[in-house]
Nucleic acid binder design. Structure first.
Lengths: 128, 128
DNA sequence: TCTTGACTTCGAGTGTGCTCAAAGATGTAC
DNA sequence: GTACATCTTTGAGCACACTCGAAGTCAAGA
């Protein structure tokens, strides 16, 4: 996370104005750091900035917004679960296709029969 | 995948010019569809368009590019594995935080002691 | 004292991947 | 025959999330 990004997050309200040293430089506390880590973690899993802004606003309002905030996290968690599922099926598909490429390469190496590339890009469904 | 997106993919060379009906309308074959599904699957797992363009170009060149193409897929598969790991740790973090919110809500419901929100946003490391 | 370097502010610019609008052709239903 | 929907083309526009640049301030080291 770059300094530029931290400034940006502050500008858009994801980070509350943080403490300063005498010279005006920002001084991040451990709590600030933990919050920034959390933000980073949510962004890294594709939570939109908008959603994070909403969460940050509710957080400022205190415990009474617990339910709303929990809902946001639960929704995002469901989203993450879906992402994982999609990634896993893509991973499996790639295993399949990579194996196929290895076969093609072996055939080329031994100067074997040049058969039409079998099903590598045409018949393998993404989920298969 | 919208029609707009399909046109876009054709424009940027991800899809070769496809067959047409007499009226000029595009007619996608099953092979076209399979390729489009593959593209969709790669995009859905965050492969950049650039990489997909490179792969598509190599594909046009035939079997001799097998090794290069395989490398692209293997790299992307590694990327996917990393994504999964990150998502899983975020998922675990959220489980933790959600449980915490439930505690807070219970405390509020029974009118219990209003203790400072414990460690929800400040001490939980993202990986914890 | 002077240089160096790390910070500050602010607004503007960039890359990615779509997404849409406008104008026109064609086929189907009434 | 005339609506209507659905496709065609092209170039422009947009959302998102940064990312950068310019000009200025400040503190420490040579």
């Amino acid at each position: 996370m770059t300094a530029h990004t931290l400034r940006y997050y502050e500008r858009v309200g994801l980070i509350q104005p943080v403490g300063r040293a005498r010279n005006g430089h920002r001084r991040y506390t451990q709590a600030d750091e933990a919050w920034i880590n959390f933000l980073h973690c949510m962004r890294a899993t594709s939570m939109p900035i908008r959603q994070m802004q909403l969460y940050a606003e509710l957080r400022e309002l205190g415990d009474s917004t617990s339910l709303e905030r929990r809902k946001i996290l639960e929704d995002h968690q469901a989203d993450i679960a879906a992402q994982i599922t999609e990634l896993q099926s893509a991973h499996a598909l790639l295993t399949h296709k990579i194996a196929n490429y290895k076969k093609i390469e072996a055939r080329i190496r031994i100067g074997g029969p040049r058969i039409e590339e079998p099903a590598v890009d045409s018949t393998l469904a993404p989920a298969s």
